[in-house]
């Protein structure tokens, strides 16, 4: 293992690829933070990021690593699931042909599994749920894993379902449900779907943004939609509150129940470990 890491340090680089956004200022933040953390650990000679919608672009990424010193590049898609971007856009833009691509300059590019596929994801979801609702007995709580649903490009709904099943099988929570913003089971129906007094909600997204800051809170009823005025005293923030503020007022009391609302799972520092794991898995 030690030799293996030494090899990585001297001539291997890590490229984390993510979607990025032209409208959401926080979309790339977790990816940049995970890259900085991995860089700090000095496992790779170089650690860079590239984005479909931000800079450096996926096309830039081909030229980010000096072929004289970097002989191998591990590409890890920071995506919650396999889908259009990880299967079509990223390989096309990076000129990858399968799991291993040898460039004309001799550089080997290894295309790794997306972070969402890694088994540690289940542990991260459990940890986040625990952190957001400390002291809440799990057998009196329902855990909701929220994904987008009906997104033509990604299979995040399938991934959320898989994670919910895995956590359910552990028998810790009274119930574990995968719910979606745009298809049944709908997050907005949580009152009917859940029976416990405590409801712990973890958005299954790679970054925070409009969905986690506003859309899901509105669907849960912990804030009211913009323009709709404020909710009951002590139960809701105005939808105009600063991004991130929404995560700082747990629990929300709605209909005599307590909702604990977490930031998107992709902001968890543990993602750095998953990214590394995926890169190391591809090497072995």
């Amino acid at each position: 293992m030690v030799n293996y890491l030494v090899t990585l340090r001297t001539d291997a680089a890590l490229l984390i690829v993510a979607h990025g956004s032209t409208v959401n200022a926080d979309s790339s933040a977790p990816t940049l933070a995970h890259a900085a953390e991995i860089r700090r650990r000095e496992i790779f000679a170089d650690v860079e990021c590239a984005f479909w919608k931000e800079e450096p672009s996926l096309r830039d990424a081909v030229f980010l690593f000096d072929p004289e010193s970097i002989r191998e590049v591990c590409v890890v898609p920071n995506f919650i699931s396999e889908g259009y971007f990880s299967q079509t856009v990223v390989p096309r833009e990076l000129e990858l042909y399968g799991r291993i691509t040898k460039r004309s300059n001799g550089q080997i590019w290894r295309y790794c599994e997306p972070v969402g596929n890694h088994p540690i994801m289940t542990d991260l979801l459990l940890r986040r749920a625990q952190e957001i609702a400390p002291g809440v007995p799990k057998n009196e709580a329902t855990l909701l894993i929220v994904a987008h649903g009906t997104d033509l490009n990604e299979n995040s709904a399938v991934a959320a379902k898989r994670e919910a099943e895995k956590i359910r099988s552990l028998g810790k929570y009274s119930a574990v449900l995968n719910v979606y913003m745009e298809e049944p089971p709908l997050v907005s129906e949580w009152r009917k779907l859940t029976k416990t007094r405590n409801v712990v909600v973890v958005p299954f997204f790679i970054s925070d943004g409009l969905h986690s800051y506003e859309d899901i809170p509105v669907l849960l009823g912990i804030v009211v939609a913009a323009g709709g005025g404020c909710g009951q005293p002590g139960s809701a923030l105005p939808a105009t509150a600063a991004p991130g503020e929404i995560f700082r007022h747990n629990p929300y009391r709605v209909d005599n129940r307590s909702i604990f609302y977490a930031p998107s799972i992709g902001t968890d520092a543990g993602f750095a470990d998953i990214i590394l794991e995926q890169a190391l898995n591809a090497k072995s």
Binding site: A50, E55, P56, R59, D60, A61, P67
Partner: peptide
């Protein structure tokens, strides 16, 4: 690199004749 992501690397690659230029129509 945070201010202008990737630009230094592109400039270095260009200086050493390693930067591939892609016509707009191809993109």
């Amino acid at each position: 690199d945070y201010f202008y992501p990737g630009r230094l690397a592109m400039f270095a690659a260009w200086k050493s004749d390693k930067l591939q230029i892609t016509p707009l129509r191809e993109t």
